[in-house]
Computed example of a mutant assay.
Amino acid sequence: MHDALTGLLEQRAPVGRETWRSWWDQLGDGGLDQAQAVALLASLTSRLPDHETLRHLLDSLAERRPATPVTTAWEGTVNVVGTGGGPRTFNISTAAAFVAAAAGVKVVKTGSRAYTSSLGSVDLLERLGIRLTSSRAQTEDTLAAHGIAFAGPFVYPTQLTRLARTVAPHSMKPFGRFLNALGPFLADLPVTAQVTGVSAAAPLDTLRHLARSTTTRRIWLTSNDTGADELLPFATNTIHGENSLTRIIRPGELTPGDGSFADLRPATDTTAAAAHFLTVLAGDAGRIATRTVCLGAAALIVASGTRRDWLSAVSLAEEAIRSGAAHDLAQRLAAAPAPAPRTLAVTGA
Protein backbone atom coordinates (compact mmCIF):
# COMPACT_ATOMS: atom_id res chain seq x y z
CA MET A 1 0.00 0.00 0.00
CA HIS A 2 1.38 3.42 -0.94
CA ASP A 3 2.50 5.72 1.90
CA ALA A 4 0.04 8.45 0.81
CA LEU A 5 -2.87 6.09 1.29
CA THR A 6 -1.45 4.69 4.52
CA GLY A 7 -0.97 8.21 5.90
CA LEU A 8 -4.56 9.18 5.09
CA LEU A 9 -6.05 6.00 6.52
CA GLU A 10 -3.99 6.18 9.70
CA GLN A 11 -4.61 9.96 9.91
CA ARG A 12 -0.93 10.70 10.17
CA ALA A 13 -0.58 14.42 9.55
CA PRO A 14 0.69 15.82 7.43
CA VAL A 15 1.24 13.69 4.36
CA GLY A 16 4.24 15.45 2.86
CA ARG A 17 4.97 16.71 -0.63
CA GLU A 18 7.55 14.00 -1.31
CA THR A 19 4.94 11.34 -0.55
CA TRP A 20 2.49 12.96 -2.94
CA ARG A 21 5.23 13.22 -5.58
CA SER A 22 5.77 9.49 -5.25
CA TRP A 23 2.03 8.87 -5.57
CA TRP A 24 1.79 10.82 -8.85
CA ASP A 25 4.97 9.18 -10.16
CA GLN A 26 3.60 5.70 -9.55
CA LEU A 27 0.19 6.64 -10.89
CA GLY A 28 1.79 7.84 -14.11
CA ASP A 29 3.92 4.73 -14.39
CA GLY A 30 0.97 2.41 -13.89
CA GLY A 31 2.31 1.28 -10.53
CA LEU A 32 -0.94 1.93 -8.65
CA ASP A 33 -3.90 -0.34 -9.14
CA GLN A 34 -7.57 0.58 -9.20
CA ALA A 35 -8.14 -0.54 -5.62
CA GLN A 36 -5.58 1.89 -4.21
CA ALA A 37 -6.85 4.78 -6.35
CA VAL A 38 -10.44 4.19 -5.25
CA ALA A 39 -9.36 3.84 -1.62
CA LEU A 40 -7.45 7.12 -1.71
CA LEU A 41 -10.39 9.03 -3.20
CA ALA A 42 -12.78 7.42 -0.72
CA SER A 43 -10.55 8.42 2.18
CA LEU A 44 -10.27 12.01 0.96
CA THR A 45 -14.03 12.19 0.52
CA SER A 46 -15.07 10.62 3.83
CA ARG A 47 -12.74 12.81 5.87
CA LEU A 48 -10.92 15.72 4.31
CA PRO A 49 -7.39 15.74 5.79
CA ASP A 50 -5.64 18.61 7.52
CA HIS A 51 -4.76 21.75 5.57
CA GLU A 52 -1.03 20.94 5.55
CA THR A 53 -1.66 17.63 3.81
CA LEU A 54 -3.87 19.39 1.27
CA ARG A 55 -1.30 22.15 0.75
CA HIS A 56 1.35 19.53 0.00
CA LEU A 57 -1.06 17.77 -2.36
CA LEU A 58 -1.80 21.02 -4.22
CA ASP A 59 1.88 21.95 -4.44
CA SER A 60 2.79 18.49 -5.74
CA LEU A 61 0.28 18.97 -8.56
CA ALA A 62 1.29 22.56 -9.28
CA GLU A 63 4.92 21.62 -9.84
CA ARG A 64 3.84 19.10 -12.50
CA ARG A 65 2.06 21.61 -14.66
CA PRO A 66 3.49 21.81 -18.16
CA ALA A 67 5.46 24.85 -19.25
CA THR A 68 3.04 27.75 -19.64
CA PRO A 69 2.81 30.26 -22.48
CA VAL A 70 4.49 33.59 -21.87
CA THR A 71 1.72 35.82 -20.60
CA THR A 72 1.20 38.65 -18.18
CA ALA A 73 -1.15 38.42 -15.25
CA TRP A 74 -4.72 39.25 -16.14
CA GLU A 75 -4.96 42.40 -14.04
CA GLY A 76 -8.42 43.11 -12.70
CA THR A 77 -9.71 39.69 -13.75
CA VAL A 78 -11.67 37.64 -11.22
CA ASN A 79 -12.53 33.94 -11.18
CA VAL A 80 -15.78 32.80 -9.58
CA VAL A 81 -16.22 29.20 -8.49
CA GLY A 82 -18.06 27.47 -5.65
CA THR A 83 -17.74 24.29 -3.64
CA GLY A 84 -21.27 23.12 -4.38
CA GLY A 85 -23.61 21.55 -1.88
CA GLY A 86 -26.22 23.24 0.24
CA PRO A 87 -29.83 24.02 -0.73
CA ARG A 88 -30.76 23.59 -4.40
CA THR A 89 -30.95 26.79 -6.44
CA PHE A 90 -30.51 27.87 -10.04
CA ASN A 91 -26.89 28.51 -11.09
CA ILE A 92 -26.46 31.76 -9.17
CA SER A 93 -22.70 32.17 -9.51
CA THR A 94 -22.86 31.64 -13.29
CA ALA A 95 -25.55 34.32 -13.52
CA ALA A 96 -23.46 36.62 -11.32
CA ALA A 97 -20.51 36.10 -13.67
CA PHE A 98 -22.53 37.32 -16.65
CA VAL A 99 -23.88 40.31 -14.73
CA ALA A 100 -20.45 41.36 -13.45
CA ALA A 101 -18.98 41.02 -16.95
CA ALA A 102 -21.84 43.10 -18.39
CA ALA A 103 -20.97 45.69 -15.75
CA GLY A 104 -17.40 45.92 -17.05
CA VAL A 105 -15.49 43.36 -14.98
CA LYS A 106 -13.21 40.82 -16.64
CA VAL A 107 -14.57 37.48 -15.40
CA VAL A 108 -13.36 33.91 -15.81
CA LYS A 109 -15.67 31.16 -14.59
CA THR A 110 -14.28 27.75 -13.76
CA GLY A 111 -16.42 24.82 -12.73
CA SER A 112 -17.45 21.31 -13.58
CA ARG A 113 -20.33 19.08 -14.41
CA ALA A 114 -22.66 18.23 -11.57
CA TYR A 115 -21.21 16.14 -8.74
CA THR A 116 -23.67 16.97 -5.98
CA SER A 117 -26.38 18.87 -7.89
CA SER A 118 -28.60 18.07 -10.85
CA LEU A 119 -26.95 20.62 -13.13
CA GLY A 120 -23.40 21.95 -12.84
CA SER A 121 -22.16 25.11 -14.52
CA VAL A 122 -20.67 23.13 -17.42
CA ASP A 123 -23.98 21.32 -17.94
CA LEU A 124 -25.81 24.64 -18.05
CA LEU A 125 -23.35 26.24 -20.47
CA GLU A 126 -23.73 23.26 -22.76
CA ARG A 127 -27.49 23.81 -22.83
CA LEU A 128 -26.98 27.51 -23.51
CA GLY A 129 -24.70 26.69 -26.45
CA ILE A 130 -21.71 28.45 -24.88
CA ARG A 131 -18.31 26.88 -25.52
CA LEU A 132 -15.63 26.32 -22.93
CA THR A 133 -12.18 27.61 -23.80
CA SER A 134 -9.54 24.99 -24.50
CA SER A 135 -6.30 26.87 -23.77
CA ARG A 136 -4.96 29.88 -21.91
CA ALA A 137 -4.47 31.76 -25.18
CA GLN A 138 -8.06 31.06 -26.22
CA THR A 139 -9.25 32.23 -22.81
CA GLU A 140 -7.35 35.50 -23.27
CA ASP A 141 -8.92 36.00 -26.70
CA THR A 142 -12.42 35.31 -25.38
CA LEU A 143 -11.89 37.72 -22.49
CA ALA A 144 -10.71 40.39 -24.92
CA ALA A 145 -13.72 39.87 -27.18
CA HIS A 146 -16.50 39.44 -24.60
CA GLY A 147 -15.17 40.34 -21.15
CA ILE A 148 -16.00 36.86 -19.89
CA ALA A 149 -14.69 33.34 -20.52
CA PHE A 150 -15.62 29.90 -19.28
CA ALA A 151 -12.47 27.87 -18.91
CA GLY A 152 -12.42 24.22 -19.89
CA PRO A 153 -10.70 21.23 -18.27
CA PHE A 154 -7.26 22.39 -19.43
CA VAL A 155 -6.97 24.48 -16.25
CA TYR A 156 -6.94 21.37 -14.06
CA PRO A 157 -4.01 19.01 -13.46
CA THR A 158 -3.75 16.17 -15.94
CA GLN A 159 -3.04 13.84 -13.03
CA LEU A 160 -6.72 14.04 -12.09
CA THR A 161 -7.62 12.73 -15.53
CA ARG A 162 -5.20 9.85 -15.02
CA LEU A 163 -6.77 9.20 -11.63
CA ALA A 164 -10.25 9.09 -13.20
CA ARG A 165 -9.05 6.61 -15.81
CA THR A 166 -7.48 4.45 -13.14
CA VAL A 167 -10.69 4.18 -11.12
CA ALA A 168 -12.84 3.50 -14.23
CA PRO A 169 -15.40 2.08 -14.67
CA HIS A 170 -16.16 3.60 -11.26
CA SER A 171 -17.55 7.12 -11.63
CA MET A 172 -15.88 10.12 -9.99
CA LYS A 173 -19.29 11.39 -8.87
CA PRO A 174 -19.24 9.59 -5.48
CA PHE A 175 -16.08 11.54 -4.69
CA GLY A 176 -17.76 14.88 -5.42
CA ARG A 177 -17.43 16.23 -1.89
CA PHE A 178 -13.63 16.15 -2.07
CA LEU A 179 -13.47 17.29 -5.70
CA ASN A 180 -15.84 20.20 -5.06
CA ALA A 181 -13.96 21.33 -1.96
CA LEU A 182 -10.51 21.26 -3.53
CA GLY A 183 -11.51 22.16 -7.09
CA PRO A 184 -11.42 25.95 -6.55
CA PHE A 185 -7.74 25.70 -5.62
CA LEU A 186 -6.73 23.57 -8.61
CA ALA A 187 -7.48 25.85 -11.57
CA ASP A 188 -4.33 27.33 -13.11
CA LEU A 189 -5.16 30.77 -14.48
CA PRO A 190 -3.35 34.11 -13.91
CA VAL A 191 -6.34 35.97 -12.46
CA THR A 192 -6.00 38.75 -9.91
CA ALA A 193 -8.72 37.55 -7.56
CA GLN A 194 -11.03 34.64 -6.91
CA VAL A 195 -14.40 34.56 -5.17
CA THR A 196 -15.39 31.13 -3.90
CA GLY A 197 -18.67 30.30 -2.26
CA VAL A 198 -18.32 27.68 0.48
CA SER A 199 -21.33 25.60 1.49
CA ALA A 200 -21.89 23.95 4.84
CA ALA A 201 -20.83 20.68 3.19
CA ALA A 202 -17.27 21.99 2.79
CA PRO A 203 -14.67 22.46 5.56
CA LEU A 204 -14.50 26.26 5.79
CA ASP A 205 -11.62 26.44 8.29
CA THR A 206 -9.45 24.13 6.17
CA LEU A 207 -10.20 26.12 3.02
CA ARG A 208 -9.38 29.37 4.80
CA HIS A 209 -5.93 27.98 5.63
CA LEU A 210 -5.46 27.02 1.97
CA ALA A 211 -6.60 30.46 0.81
CA ARG A 212 -4.10 32.21 3.09
CA SER A 213 -1.25 30.06 1.77
CA THR A 214 -2.13 30.69 -1.90
CA THR A 215 0.20 33.30 -3.36
CA THR A 216 -0.83 33.37 -7.03
CA ARG A 217 -4.12 35.24 -6.51
CA ARG A 218 -6.23 36.90 -3.85
CA ILE A 219 -8.98 34.56 -2.64
CA TRP A 220 -12.23 35.51 -0.95
CA LEU A 221 -14.30 32.75 0.60
CA THR A 222 -17.98 33.46 1.21
CA SER A 223 -20.31 31.61 3.55
CA ASN A 224 -23.62 32.24 5.24
CA ASP A 225 -25.93 31.00 7.97
CA THR A 226 -28.13 29.03 5.56
CA GLY A 227 -25.36 26.68 4.44
CA ALA A 228 -25.48 27.77 0.79
CA ASP A 229 -22.37 28.51 -1.26
CA GLU A 230 -23.74 31.85 -2.50
CA LEU A 231 -24.26 35.33 -1.09
CA LEU A 232 -27.96 35.66 -0.29
CA PRO A 233 -29.95 38.83 0.44
CA PHE A 234 -32.04 37.06 3.12
CA ALA A 235 -29.05 35.51 4.94
CA THR A 236 -26.22 36.74 7.13
CA ASN A 237 -23.21 36.43 4.83
CA THR A 238 -19.55 36.40 5.77
CA ILE A 239 -16.74 37.19 3.36
CA HIS A 240 -13.41 35.78 4.53
CA GLY A 241 -10.75 37.89 2.86
CA GLU A 242 -7.01 38.05 2.79
CA ASN A 243 -5.03 38.34 6.01
CA SER A 244 -7.97 36.90 7.96
CA LEU A 245 -10.05 40.02 7.31
CA THR A 246 -13.78 39.41 7.23
CA ARG A 247 -16.81 41.37 6.18
CA ILE A 248 -20.33 40.55 7.33
CA ILE A 249 -23.30 41.47 5.13
CA ARG A 250 -26.62 41.23 6.95
CA PRO A 251 -30.13 41.06 5.48
CA GLY A 252 -31.31 44.51 4.43
CA GLU A 253 -27.82 46.04 4.45
CA LEU A 254 -27.22 46.18 0.69
CA THR A 255 -30.59 45.00 -0.64
CA PRO A 256 -33.99 44.37 0.96
CA GLY A 257 -33.71 41.28 3.15
CA ASP A 258 -36.94 39.44 2.36
CA GLY A 259 -37.17 36.21 0.37
CA SER A 260 -36.36 32.53 0.75
CA PHE A 261 -34.99 29.57 -1.17
CA ALA A 262 -38.40 29.11 -2.73
CA ASP A 263 -37.57 32.21 -4.80
CA LEU A 264 -34.31 30.66 -6.05
CA ARG A 265 -35.51 27.25 -7.12
CA PRO A 266 -34.02 25.82 -10.32
CA ALA A 267 -36.16 24.86 -13.27
CA THR A 268 -38.21 21.78 -12.44
CA ASP A 269 -37.07 20.15 -15.69
CA THR A 270 -33.37 20.38 -16.52
CA THR A 271 -34.26 20.70 -20.21
CA ALA A 272 -35.80 24.08 -19.32
CA ALA A 273 -32.74 25.24 -17.39
CA ALA A 274 -31.31 27.39 -20.20
CA ALA A 275 -34.58 29.23 -20.78
CA HIS A 276 -35.04 29.81 -17.05
CA PHE A 277 -31.46 31.05 -16.74
CA LEU A 278 -32.02 33.64 -19.47
CA THR A 279 -35.11 34.92 -17.64
CA VAL A 280 -32.86 35.39 -14.58
CA LEU A 281 -30.40 37.47 -16.60
CA ALA A 282 -33.27 39.50 -18.02
CA GLY A 283 -34.55 40.27 -14.52
CA ASP A 284 -37.78 38.37 -15.14
CA ALA A 285 -37.37 35.58 -12.57
CA GLY A 286 -38.57 37.65 -9.64
CA ARG A 287 -37.10 40.38 -7.48
CA ILE A 288 -35.43 37.97 -5.01
CA ALA A 289 -33.62 36.15 -7.81
CA THR A 290 -32.46 39.48 -9.23
CA ARG A 291 -31.24 40.74 -5.85
CA THR A 292 -29.38 37.51 -5.22
CA VAL A 293 -27.57 37.60 -8.56
CA CYS A 294 -26.73 41.29 -8.08
CA LEU A 295 -25.26 40.61 -4.64
CA GLY A 296 -23.04 37.88 -6.09
CA ALA A 297 -22.04 40.12 -8.99
CA ALA A 298 -21.23 42.92 -6.56
CA ALA A 299 -18.70 40.65 -4.85
CA LEU A 300 -16.94 40.15 -8.18
CA ILE A 301 -17.05 43.87 -8.92
CA VAL A 302 -15.45 44.73 -5.57
CA ALA A 303 -12.94 41.85 -5.64
CA SER A 304 -11.75 42.92 -9.10
CA GLY A 305 -11.14 46.47 -7.92
CA THR A 306 -13.71 47.94 -10.31
CA ARG A 307 -15.56 49.43 -7.33
CA ARG A 308 -14.58 49.71 -3.70
CA ASP A 309 -18.00 50.57 -2.34
CA TRP A 310 -20.45 47.67 -2.10
CA LEU A 311 -23.58 49.79 -2.53
CA SER A 312 -22.32 51.26 -5.80
CA ALA A 313 -21.28 47.76 -6.90
CA VAL A 314 -24.82 46.48 -6.31
CA SER A 315 -26.20 49.43 -8.27
CA LEU A 316 -23.83 48.71 -11.13
CA ALA A 317 -24.99 45.09 -11.20
CA GLU A 318 -28.65 46.11 -11.12
CA GLU A 319 -28.10 48.39 -14.11
CA ALA A 320 -26.42 45.55 -16.05
CA ILE A 321 -29.64 43.53 -15.68
CA ARG A 322 -32.08 46.43 -16.10
CA SER A 323 -30.42 47.62 -19.32
CA GLY A 324 -30.50 44.12 -20.84
CA ALA A 325 -26.68 44.03 -21.05
CA ALA A 326 -26.32 40.77 -19.08
CA HIS A 327 -28.96 38.96 -21.12
CA ASP A 328 -27.49 40.25 -24.40
CA LEU A 329 -23.99 39.15 -23.37
CA ALA A 330 -25.14 35.56 -22.85
CA GLN A 331 -26.82 35.51 -26.25
CA ARG A 332 -23.77 37.01 -27.99
CA LEU A 333 -21.47 34.47 -26.40
CA ALA A 334 -23.74 31.62 -27.48
CA ALA A 335 -23.75 32.90 -31.06
CA ALA A 336 -20.01 33.58 -31.21
CA PRO A 337 -17.87 31.33 -33.44
CA ALA A 338 -15.15 29.30 -31.83
CA PRO A 339 -11.95 31.35 -31.44
CA ALA A 340 -9.17 30.50 -33.85
CA PRO A 341 -6.22 28.62 -32.29
CA ARG A 342 -3.37 30.87 -31.24
CA THR A 343 0.18 29.83 -30.39
CA LEU A 344 2.28 31.60 -27.79
CA ALA A 345 5.93 31.19 -26.88
CA VAL A 346 6.45 28.67 -24.11
CA THR A 347 8.62 29.01 -21.03
CA GLY A 348 10.42 26.22 -19.24
CA ALA A 349 11.15 24.18 -22.38
Rank of each mutant, 00 (worst) to 15 (best):
178 F>G: 01
259 G>Y: 00
329 L>V: 09
254 L>H: 02
172 M>V: 14
70 V>S: 11
275 A>S: 06
285 A>Y: 00
183 G>I: 01
21 R>L: 10
300 L>T: 02
296 G>D: 15
172 M>K: 07
332 R>S: 13
154 F>S: 03
319 E>N: 04
257 G>N: 05
63 E>L: 14
80 V>R: 10
277 F>A: 02
56 H>L: 14
262 A>R: 08
202 A>I: 12
27 L>I: 00
226 T>M: 01
178 F>M: 14
41 L>A: 11
182 L>A: 10
261 F>E: 04
11 Q>D: 13
240 H>V: 07
131 R>H: 12
187 A>L: 08
283 G>S: 06
32 L>H: 13
119 L>Y: 03
110 T>K: 04
208 R>E: 13
142 T>Q: 09
188 D>K: 10
150 F>I: 04
66 P>T: 09
288 I>G: 03
90 F>N: 01
94 T>N: 07
83 T>A: 06
105 V>Y: 06
296 G>K: 09
245 L>Y: 10
262 A>I: 02
208 R>G: 05
83 T>S: 05
306 T>P: 00
98 F>C: 09
330 A>W: 09
270 T>E: 13
349 A>C: 14
64 R>A: 13
276 H>V: 03
321 I>N: 04
225 D>H: 07
335 A>E: 09
144 A>H: 10
347 T>E: 15
175 F>P: 08
123 D>K: 07
164 A>V: 03
258 D>M: 06
40 L>Q: 13
100 A>N: 02
230 E>A: 14
167 V>C: 11
206 T>D: 07
329 L>C: 03
229 D>H: 11
69 P>D: 06
244 S>H: 11
290 T>N: 05
53 T>A: 01
142 T>E: 11
101 A>M: 11
329 L>I: 08
309 D>S: 10
299 A>N: 11
5 L>V: 15
211 A>K: 01
186 L>E: 10
328 D>R: 08
242 E>H: 11
2 H>T: 15
44 L>A: 12
192 T>D: 09
124 L>D: 02
173 K>I: 15
31 G>C: 01
225 D>G: 01
